[in-house]
Amino acid sequence: MGQHKAGLILMGSWLPSEASAFAAKGMVYDSFPFPTVGGSGNDAARVDFSGFEIPKQAKNAKVAEQFAAFFLSKKYQTMWAKDAQLIPVRSDVPVGGSLANVVKDLTTATTFRSQDGGILYPGYTTKVLDPIDDQLFFGKITPQQFVTQMVAAQKNYWASQG
């Protein structure tokens, strides 16, 4: 792609910064949301967050809050967007380049989801969803079989969780 040999890739907004080291000069990136099936326009978008977490039991929670506020100040959020090519959380920071359209799509979206639907149950994604999802993706099972197998696998999963 970066060598002007490909035109389209199903990927997140992190691609331009990751490919920058070996992409051809003058490569221009842009994006559009994945079309919804039978739906009208862009209503769902995927977002993953990176940020700060302060444990309840932390001894210096106040200082940690101050650090987070310092890091999220306009100056560093601008660098975050410009140099690291990541989406800032502040709306008063301008976003350019390939991220402009991503941010536009995010602001018009009405629902959001994160990686794996944000499911954090121990081992659910790796042991229940992924193996059956793989089979569906590789065309080994039909969507109906996928549903049946997922129902059975989830029953087992919840039974084993006690």
């Binding site: 990686q115 794996d116 499911i119 954090l120 149950y121 121990p122 081992g123 659910y124 994604t125 790796t126 042991k127």
Partner: peptide, 11 residues
């Protein structure tokens, strides 16, 4: 994979 389960809560 069970103990350090990828993106999920470790078991």
């Amino acid at each position: 994979a069970t103990a350090f389960g990828g993106q999920s809560i470790p078991a």
